[in-house]
Write a protein that binds this DNA or RNA. Structure first.
Lengths: 209, 209
DNA sequence: CCTACCGATCGGTAGG
DNA sequence: CCTACCGATCGGTAGG
């Protein structure tokens, strides 16, 4: 009825606000989000915007949550049908580099931008992001470990190092493409990722050359 | 005399302002710099701060210049005595990873932070940073090319890909250390870098595994 | 969800 | 280099 409908409307307004906040943050960082600007862009009042969250900090936390959900949906979920280990990792790399090269935000991956911005700061927003990134690193490392244990990757492979390398290669696509005049960054990333996961019995830290 | 002395004083004040601006930007990005905050931190008036630069944009440009100078002094200059090619690249990687793991700023490498922040934006500050990064990428790639031409690195090596990989590995030290609970990031970066430049005749994109 | 408002801070300038 | 000031915008609240 009326109550149900208004709850639904409120939820969709909240989502509209968060999508806009994520778009802004992808370009200028979470610090670029402002209540007044969101209100102007969305044709709302400032109190209408912040009323959904209570404070700027809560809005930033919700933006991080949305960014994490979108990342999971576009990079991890579609790779899940693949068998565990090397094959799943190869699929993750494909979806991940495609996501980074053609991001669902105007300014590139929101998580990558926020990571560099929040790395040196402290507080709840830092902690929230750190939780997601630590989880992702462990997910990747666990997948590598599975590959090693099932002889899909060389026994000398260090799961944490490979997870680190994959993360580094993807998060540099944004800066390389837009700042270092390296438009082919996404291709180079994919080449390097597949070399790391070549699985021809060589040690993964051979694959980078 | 008095004139000379005042010029010198002004220059040293300008440098104090820029050092502080660089420290702030390394933590919060160039957007975190504010004239009022610099004035408070340095016990000056706001007009005393901005008078040295004319505008916020000029202050940010000067901060980028300082960051580039510091990077060159700590990473490139000390590697120059090494012979061109693979040996010089190995030295660059040592200085670079040490600089990234133990940066001369409270918030990590200023250039890395500003790169992610400015990648999606446009304007003079973006252009200034892009110039430095493009130059650095070309410097690295040229050094790799020299190594290939002198049989220090495998003939199949792609200089641009190797330059991309080295840049990616170092710029992720900051986020991995502070957000992904990977305190050994600097070691992993160095391991991967040396693998890329192993020079044992294998293709560099073998080195990553 | 709105209007109307709060104190604080923003970049920048005038005048000295 | 300073004080004093400008209009604009910040996050947030009161009251409806």
């Amino acid at each position: 009825m009326a109550g149900r409908r208004s709850v639904e409307v409120a939820r969709s307004t909240r989502e509209r606000i968060l999508r806009k906040a994520a778009d802004i943050a992808s370009v200028e960082g979470l610090g670029g989000i402002s209540i007044g600007r969101l209100a102007t862009d969305l044709d709302m009042s400032k109190s209408g915007v912040i009323g959904h969250f209570g404070s700027m900090e809560e809005l930033q936390l919700a933006t991080i949550d949305l960014g994490s959900e979108i990342f999971k949906r576009l990079v991890w979920d579609p790779a899940l049908p693949e068998p565990s280990g090397r094959q799943r990792l190869l699929a993750v790399c494909d979806y991940w580099s495609a996501y980074s090269a053609n991001p669902p935000y105007p300014g590139g991956c929101l998580i990558a931008t926020a990571s560099m911005e929040l790395a040196g700061q402290s507080g709840p927003v830092h902690e929230r992001l750190a939780g997601y990134l630590t989880l992702w690193h462990r997910t990747l490392a666990a997948e590598v470990r599975y590959g090693v244990e099932h002889a899909q990757l060389a026994a000398s492979t260090d799961p944490d190092t490979v997870a680190y390398i994959l993360q580094a290669l993807t998060s540099s696509i944004k800066t390389a493409t837009h700042l270092s005049a390296v438009p082919e960054a996404a291709d180079r990333c994919r080449t390097a990722m597949r070399a790391v996961l070549a699985g021809d019995g060589a040690d993964p830290t051979d694959g980078l050359r």
